[in-house]
């Protein structure tokens, strides 16, 4: 039986970052990655769908840094690893996972747009491990909005925002057909 889930409408409250602030945050994160992993070619793995364009942008910023090795790119789909897949919601679409030939012994940076409960990252870690044993896995997120339900910490954070559970954070990206920006939305009770 399907559990009915009432979706209350979301209303935009304010912009947390514009396109320039987003670019600054990503550039800083790229510098931190190079500082932390000098002389190493990283594998940036974007979590579908929001993390994938961010991983590409981070790679672009890293390539601009003098002396930094160009990272490889990957994309991971976590649908089949979710812990809520049979919670009565419609079956989510399953995307493809594309990783460079081997992640064994490499440093992998998981990239996502919003860090919230940490459950997506848990699923992504499980998915990643099925492809081999990386030497180290790090986590980069554009925005950390708190409310973790699992012991998961980001290594690189673009911005941090205290939110309530009633709110929602959306990262709009040019690659996904919107204008760059981070928006805070609120669920309104009818």
């Amino acid at each position: 039986m399907r559990r009915a889930r009432k979706e209350t409408p979301l209303v935009a409250r304010r912009q947390l970052a514009d396109s320039a602030a987003m670019a600054r945050a990503l550039r800083r994160m790229a510098h931190e990655m190079v500082e932390k992993n000098p002389d190493e070619s990283l594998i940036l793995v974007g979590i579908r769908s929001g993390g994938v364009p961010l991983a590409e942008r981070l790679r672009g910023h890293i390539k601009e840094i003098a002396g930094a090795k160009a990272p490889e790119l990957g994309a991971i789909d976590i649908t089949l690893y979710r812990d809520d897949i049979f919670e009565g919601l419609p079956k989510p679409e399953v995307g493809s996972t594309e990783l460079p030939s081997s992640i064994v012994g490499r440093t992998v940076v998981l990239v996502d747009d919003v860090l919230y409960t940490g459950r997506t990252i848990r699923a992504a870690l499980d998915a990643l491990m099925d492809f081999g044993r990386p030497r180290r896995v790090e986590l980069a997120v554009l925005i950390d909005r708190g409310h973790r339900e699992l012991p998961i910490q980001p290594d690189y954070v673009g911005m941090t925002e205290k939110t309530t559970r009633n709110e929602s954070v959306q990262v709009a990206l040019a690659e996904l057909g919107a204008e760059d920006g981070v928006l805070l939305l609120e669920r309104v009770r009818p």
Partner: peptide
């Protein structure tokens, strides 16, 4: 379409997902 996605799992070293 779903089948095409699932076939990729059969190509992996670890041919199993926890779904």
């Amino acid at each position: 379409d779903l089948s095409d996605t699932f076939l990729e799992i059969s190509e992996r070293a670890i041919k199993k997902v926890p779904t």
